Amino acid sequence: MSAAKQVIVVGAGIIGASVAWHLAKAGANVTVVADSGAGGFATPNSFSWINASWGNPEPYFRLRTRSMAEWTRLAHDVPGIPLEWCGGLCWDLPPAELEAYAVEHSAWGYGIERVDRMGAARIEPNLTKLPDFALHVAEEGVAEPVAATQALLVDAVQRGLRMMGGTAVTALVQTNGRITGVDMSGGRIAADEVVIAAGAGSPAIAATAGLKLPIETPPGLIVHSRPYEKLLNGLVIGDRLHMRQTAEGRIIAGSDFGGADPGMDAAATGRELFAAMKSMLRDADRLELDFHSVGYRPTPIDGFPIIGRAEGLSGLYVAVMHSGITLAPAVGLFAAREILDDARDPLLEPYGLTRFAQ
């Protein structure tokens, strides 16, 4: 490994921050360039559920569970990361599908507990609408997204990282078929490698080098209450509403964890969603809507992450995905190893760009 390798990370969301922190910790000279502050644009609008749930094929499940373990390591290494393993109560599938999911993931080692209505009430006593059958995973959790991103970048700056916020990358610089830096509104920076981790903005940046990133950016609306007394113990993944209570006491919710479809009138949709959320909670008479947010989730067209170097274009690494909160610690660790040591972790094998050429 060359400790003096010059790396530019484009993007200051949770993925960019994790990649940058792991690179700086490993001894690289890292510059983060972002047209936003710490957190980027998608990360602040994240539901922030850390999990390996849902209909994942086993290889993706293994990557997600590895990253859940890496969250514990990262929170130990970086002071100030707000991480809580609060558990998740889920009934967002018909009972037969919920049971099939439980059977499959339990066989893979996921800690799923089946609960009835009374069991659900013990876990979340302030819910007014309880399912007859639900699943509880105690090992699921949350990391407050902006605070976690800021903690990573602050610690990385202490390790020598250079932060250039409020600066847009206008183009990737190519020299003899290799990416050698970035052009910005304020000038040019050279690098041995450039990492694109700019979320929804990644395709436009990659296109300046002739690289197509097959990414969609569906919107997701989440409502945020004013801070309130504690009503929820963990994540609630209901059949029409997903919600949790943040570290500062806000209850946030979407029609799913990615957020609701904002429709033609996001404010009206937000008010309806908040009313539905409030009706699901006991002792919520004084709960007030503070604001709604609409985030655009960078989602590769097949639903799985894009992580790795661009074939035929050396000096460029891509790290773009939905589920950024869950995957950030493992992606940061594995990307840093690959960038500095050319060592690709086997868990990343399915997620290179070459799969879209087939």
Rank of each mutant, 00 (worst) to 15 (best):
T299P: 00
G352E: 12
E70H: 10
R162E: 15
A336W: 06
P131L: 09
A100T: 12
A247C: 07
W49A: 02
G141P: 02
A42H: 14
K278V: 02
K129C: 09
V19T: 11
A148F: 02
F356I: 10
Y351N: 02
Q6I: 07
E99V: 15
G210K: 05
W71E: 06
L273I: 14
F334S: 02
L172H: 04
P94F: 08
I237Q: 10
Y228Q: 01
E140I: 11
H136L: 12
K5H: 05
P227H: 11
M118C: 08
E70Y: 11
N45D: 03
E349K: 09
S293F: 04
E99N: 12
D77F: 01
A102Y: 02
G303M: 11
V78P: 00
C86Y: 05
D239K: 13
A138V: 11
E229A: 13
N51Y: 13
F334Y: 15
G27D: 06
G308L: 05
G199T: 03
I196D: 02
A247Y: 03
G199K: 03
L313A: 14
P305L: 04
I189P: 01
E140C: 12
D192F: 10
G27F: 04
M118A: 15
F291A: 10
S36I: 02
A266C: 03
L74V: 06
V32D: 02
E272A: 08
R188F: 07
L287D: 01
W91K: 13
H242C: 13
T149P: 09
E338N: 08
A336R: 04
M163G: 00
V19M: 07
P94H: 06
E58S: 10
A190M: 12
D302P: 00
S323M: 10
P298V: 03
G315E: 07
C90W: 03
L273M: 10
A206R: 04
S225A: 14
L353K: 01
H136C: 06
G37K: 09
L313W: 09
A121G: 04
A267P: 02
T326A: 08
P346Y: 03
P125R: 10
G324K: 09
A200L: 08
Y317A: 09
T170M: 05
Q245Y: 06
P95K: 07
G111F: 04
L89N: 13
A12E: 10
A284P: 04
A190S: 14
P298Q: 08
V115N: 04
V146D: 00
I123S: 02
A171I: 05
W108R: 15
G332K: 03
K212H: 08
D342M: 09
G87T: 03
N29V: 15
A12G: 07
S53A: 14
A28I: 06
P329K: 09
G258E: 11
A107P: 00
G11D: 11
G109R: 06
